[in-house]
């Protein structure tokens, strides 16, 4: 049955037993993203010294795809050098945009390859990407620039308000439909 490609055991495992769930201190950047069509929500915090992500913590509510995706993200990116982490993000985003035509790189994406089937369901791609987009925002607020991955973060205060402009832009269309 085709639906098995979507609900892989790995995804259901991460959904039922999420890894590293819960928001933790200290952190340098935080982002809250919402999927306005279904109300899925995720908050991501990153702690970083500029060279690597020492912790990625998260909380949220929503469908199995969005919540498992956050768990996989935590597993894949925590402790990684920043440049490497963004390569994984790019790989995951490419997989999700591939409409099922992209062969995932298991060495790069680990459990993330389980999401290959999601790419065949256009309505669900946004669910899978939700934590990854929030992560990119949180990393940017922590001063980590994906274009210059090895640079130290800017020494500004922790950026933690969930009502920053990008989060608002995500939330604004909620009243739609």
């Amino acid at each position: 049955m085709q639906i098995d490609q979507l609900y892989q055991e790995i995804i259901l495992d991460h959904y039922k037993h999420p890894h590293g769930r819960g928001l933790r201190e200290p952190f340098l950047g935080e982002a809250h993203h919402v999927n306005p069509t279904c109300g899925d929500e995720v908050t991501i915090r990153v702690a970083t010294d500029g060279a690597s992500f020492s912790d990625i913590s998260y909380d949220g509510m929503g469908c199995s795809i969005s919540q498992a995706s956050a768990s996989v993200l935590h597993e894949l990116l925590t402790g990684r050098a920043t440049g490497e982490a963004f390569r994984v993000v790019d790989g995951f985003v490419e997989l999700m945009g591939g409409r099922g035509q992209v062969t995932p790189d298991e060495d790069l994406l680990g459990d993330g390859v389980a999401f290959a089937g999601v790419a065949r369901y256009p309505a669900r791609v946004k669910c899978a990407l939700l934590p990854w987009m929030a992560f990119k925002d949180a990393a940017a607020r922590a001063g980590v620039d994906p274009a210059a991955p090895s640079s130290a973060p800017s020494p500004s205060a922790p950026s933690s308000s969930p009502s920053l402009s990008t989060a608002e832009a995500q939330e604004a269309p909620e009243v739609k439909a």
């Binding site: 049955m1 085709q2 639906i3 979507l6 609900y7 279904c38 899925d40 929503g62 469908c63 199995s64 795809i65 369901y121 669900r124 669910c127």
Partner: peptide
């Protein structure tokens, strides 16, 4: 079970 998942499996 989130409604999104309910709807997806029902659709299948």
């Amino acid at each position: 079970v989130h409604p999104h998942d309910v709807g997806q499996i029902l659709d299948s």
